[in-house]
Computed example of a mutant assay.
Amino acid sequence: MPTGNPAGSADGPPEPAPPVIALTGVGRSFPGPPPVTALHPSDLVIRRGEYVAVTGPSGSGKSTLLHLLGLLDTPTTGSYELDGIDTARLGDRDRSTLRGRRIGFVFQSFHLLAHRTAEENVLLAQVYNRTPRARRRAAAREALHQVGLAHRTQALPGTLSGGERQRVAIARALVNRPSLLLCDEPTGNLDSANATAVLAQFEELHARGHTLVVITHDPAVAEHARRSVRISDGRLSELTTPAVGG
């Protein structure tokens, strides 16, 4: 949600858009006894168009961070701004609306409805976003086209490969044109060939300007990101990740 003066105004050029993600001192703890700190107060800024990997072992706090970034949980300390919107000021309904409009999720398990076609699985994601009914089918087909599945719109999940099912899930995440694509171990259920295809898909989405955050324990997956953040014992630290493909 850009701020500032419109382009070409007499007051000068527009201000840059706010970061997609801006965490300031964000932490999450759970009451005891004894109390547990799952995420120590942390700062993190992710700008539009970045491709970021969050790495760390099991129990490091990756799931806690995922839930916070995805507006599935609220921090106990600090502030989280999504597209410049202070999420702490939102009630449950507004948070849910913001999540549906601004965040697309891709999980390790595809979570596709077995008796619905690929097109229908993608189309249903728009119901909760209040997309006008007349636009839903065309938007679903466009999203499937983006992930190279225009020829599989009427296929049931059981007839698709693992990689194709994950690409349907990616299309479902993209259909509402979110600001952020949040991916949790997206290749965890795939063989090496299908994992390679999905990672190539992420490269294409990044090249088109999408903002991706991939949470993974796999260094081979993290290598494809342009930037890497590590979480260990609930503490975030920046890492340098070599760019792949330039």
Rank of each mutant, 00 (worst) to 15 (best):
T159I: 00
D83W: 04
G158S: 03
A138Y: 06
V175K: 13
G84S: 09
L112S: 06
A143R: 12
S109G: 01
A88K: 02
L144A: 03
A143G: 12
L144H: 10
R136C: 07
L113Q: 12
S96Y: 05
E81V: 02
V175F: 14
S79P: 10
A173L: 10
A155Q: 07
E142V: 07
R130G: 12
H115I: 09
F110Y: 09
F105S: 15
R133H: 09
G84A: 08
G148M: 03
G78Y: 10
D83F: 07
S79G: 06
G91M: 15
A171W: 08
A88G: 15
S79C: 09
V106R: 15
G84R: 00
H111G: 11
R89V: 12
F107G: 15
G84W: 15
R135K: 13
A169Q: 04
N129L: 04
D83C: 06
T153E: 15
A139W: 02
L144V: 02
A171V: 11
R133L: 00
A134N: 07
A88Y: 00
A171E: 04
A173G: 15
E81F: 03
L174C: 11
R136I: 03
A88S: 12
L160F: 01
R135N: 10
A171C: 07
S109Y: 09
D94W: 01
E119F: 10
A155G: 00
E164M: 12
D92V: 14
H115R: 10
R101A: 09
T74E: 14
L123C: 14
Q126K: 08
A125C: 05
H145W: 07
A114M: 06
E164A: 00
D92W: 12
D94Q: 06
R141A: 11
L174V: 05
A171L: 12
L160H: 01
T117F: 11
L90G: 01
V127E: 01
E164Q: 03
E119M: 11
T97L: 05
R102M: 05
R101Y: 07
L123Q: 13
G148S: 01
G78T: 09
F105A: 15
A140D: 14
T77S: 14
E81D: 13
A143Q: 04
G162P: 06
P157W: 01
L144R: 03
R130M: 03
D86Q: 13
T153L: 11
N129V: 08
I103L: 15
A134E: 03
L123E: 05
R137S: 10
L112E: 05
R102L: 04
I170H: 08
S109L: 10
G78D: 05
L149T: 04
P132F: 14
E120N: 06
L82N: 05
A125N: 09
E164T: 05
I85G: 08
V106T: 14
G91V: 14
R152C: 02
V147L: 00
H111W: 13
R152E: 02
V175M: 08
D83S: 08
R133C: 00
A88H: 02
L82F: 06
R102A: 15
E120Y: 02
R116Q: 06
L90K: 02
